[in-house]
Simulated scan of single mutants.
Amino acid sequence: MRIDINADLGEGFGPYSIADDEALMPLITSANIACGYHAGDPMIMDRTVRLAKENGVDIGAHVSFPDRMGFGRRVIQMDASEIEKHVLYQLGALDAFARATGQRIWHVNPHGALGNLASADAKTAEALVSAVRQFDPEIRLLVLPGSALEKAAKEAGLPCWRLFLVDRAYTKDGQLAPRSLPGAVIKDEAAVLARLLKLLREHVVETIDGETIDMPAHSILVHSDTPGAVALARTIRKALEQSGTSIVPLSAQV
């Protein structure tokens, strides 16, 4: 089995930062880089892209609603055309820094409210897929298995990779449990590790309702803004290595 480890990075603004990007980067194989909408600015984007290159980490665009105050976790009412253009704008911004360092964008992972909406709503998913396909049809989307986003990508002939959020609870329909629900964010390292091992052995996950659903995955996400994220990433990487799983970036899974 081959699997990627990714994390959301570059999520700061000016002198402020959310996570320890320098410590996380050597532990992952793909980075979802904030494109200035929910976090990030030109200096941070440039620094994060260069840090990824130094560590041999794939670059992905972490696109969002324009919601810096809410960290991209609030839905902003837009029609499909607006969503498409906002995603294109963010791809162009990150691509400029990638090209300047001889790199490219490998994947798109929608952040927060935009990601949740695209997973459940066909129109939002189609807008996001349209933006990615127009920008570069070789870029793949990171998707929840069975989601509206995966369906839209497949219908458009756009390849995608399946994502597992190891520290987030799922509902029985395969969506992420709302953060407002108790237990939606899993902070106990032992519980996170147990979920990971179950995924590796059985390719399933237990939902917040106590049911079991299939969970095929190409990539595992570590939330960088979770307390203890660096230690958790180390634990996850060690568990994968001990299980005999090959840890490879998404670009090596084409």
Rank of each mutant, 00 (worst) to 15 (best):
E150T: 09
A153H: 07
L117H: 01
L158V: 03
I83S: 05
L149S: 03
L117R: 08
K85V: 12
G112C: 10
L144W: 03
A148N: 03
P137D: 04
F135R: 03
A98S: 10
Q77H: 14
R73L: 03
P159C: 10
A148F: 01
A98E: 12
A93I: 14
F97L: 02
R74T: 09
A131V: 00
G72I: 04
Q77V: 07
D79K: 00
H86L: 11
A122N: 08
A122L: 14
F135L: 06
K151Y: 06
L114H: 11
E84F: 06
G115P: 08
H86N: 12
K85S: 09
T101M: 15
A80F: 05
V87Y: 11
Q90G: 07
L141W: 10
S81E: 14
S147H: 13
M78P: 00
S147M: 00
G157V: 08
A152L: 04
E84Q: 15
L128P: 11
Q134P: 00
W106L: 13
V87D: 02
I105A: 13
G112E: 10
A131T: 03
N116R: 05
R133V: 10
A122W: 07
V87I: 12
D79C: 01
G92F: 08
S130Q: 09
R73K: 04
E82G: 07
S130A: 13
Q90L: 05
L88T: 08
S130T: 08
D79V: 04
M78H: 10
A118R: 10
V75G: 08
A80N: 13
N116S: 13
A93G: 15
N109K: 15
L88W: 07
K85L: 15
G115D: 02
V129W: 13
R133S: 13
G92T: 01
Q90W: 04
A93H: 07
H111A: 00
V108M: 07
G92P: 06
F97M: 03
S81T: 10
P137Q: 02
W106A: 15
L88V: 11
P159V: 06
A113P: 02
N116T: 08
L88I: 02
Q134G: 07
W106H: 15
L91P: 12
R99G: 05
P137M: 02
S119F: 08
D136C: 06
A100F: 10
L144A: 03
S130E: 05
H86D: 10
P159R: 12
A113R: 12
E126P: 01
Q90C: 10
R140I: 00
L88Q: 09
S147E: 00
F135P: 03
V108K: 11
E82D: 12
A100C: 10
L149C: 03
A93C: 07
R104H: 12
E150H: 01
R73W: 00
G102E: 01
A122V: 15
A80S: 14
L144G: 07
R104S: 13
S130L: 02
R74A: 09
V87P: 03
A118Y: 04
K123E: 14
A131Y: 07
P159I: 01
A120G: 15
L144Q: 06
G92M: 08
V75E: 07
E155L: 11
D136F: 05
T101I: 04
V129M: 02
A80T: 11
I76F: 03
V75K: 14
M78C: 06
T124Q: 04
E84S: 09
I76C: 12
E138Y: 12
